[in-house]
């Protein structure tokens, strides 16, 4: 299951989507809007994406996960638009025969998504200011980076 939605994410459905009788483990990662980043207070986040490319990039990451780890299923759902405090912006679920593969694959996928997938968030701070988050010094996504992420293919 891979999709991008403006609606609230039903995280239980995302977890349900990776169920398998061959799986002895399922991991669900949920990213939520955090109120405080250091001293700064967030009132809401707003996400925007380049949808066609984002979906292709997420599919490539899922393909990579399936090539690198022995897993049963992998689902990724990302929300766009306004995401209030405590609400979920992303849910990633992975199932596998044993827990290590699911833990590793889910962590890797979320790390890579934050580098490779064209989705952006805007902070709405409590003081009324807003700010697109464009991290400086972050690893730049390139075809080379993607190939090395795939294991040097």
């Amino acid at each position: 299951m891979i999709f991008i939605t403006p609606k609230a994410i039903d995280t239980s459905k995302v977890l349900e989507s990776v169920k398998s009788q061959q799986a002895g483990a399922s991991v669900l990662f949920v990213g939520t809007t955090r109120q405080f980043t250091g001293e700064k207070e967030t009132v809401q986040l707003e996400y925007e994406c380049y949808e066609s490319m984002a979906l292709e990039k997420i599919q490539q990451l899922v393909d990579s996960v399936e090539a690198k780890w022995n897993i049963e299923h992998c689902s990724v759902v990302h929300r766009i638009g306004v995401v209030g405090l405590g609400e979920s912006s992303i849910a990633v679920a992975v199932s596998s025969g044993h827990r290590l593969e699911s833990f590793e694959a889910a962590a890797w996928l979320v790390d890579e998504l934050k580098i490779q997938v064209p989705i952006w968030k805007k902070e709405f701070w409590a003081d009324g200011k807003t700010e697109w988050v464009h991290p400086s010094g972050a690893p730049k996504p390139t075809p080379q980076d993607f190939n090395s992420a795939q294991g040097g293919a």
Partner: peptide, 30 residues
């Protein structure tokens, strides 16, 4: 970064007339 036809390009990539081109500021999904 820049994407051509929904794949990241390098500085040396050649842009063709009918390419789907996007400017991709540092991403912050998740």
């Amino acid at each position: 970064a820049v994407s051509l036809n929904r794949e990241f390009a390098t500085d040396e990539s050649v842009v063709r007339e009918n390419d789907e081109i996007a400017l991709i500021p540092p991403v912050s999904g998740g």
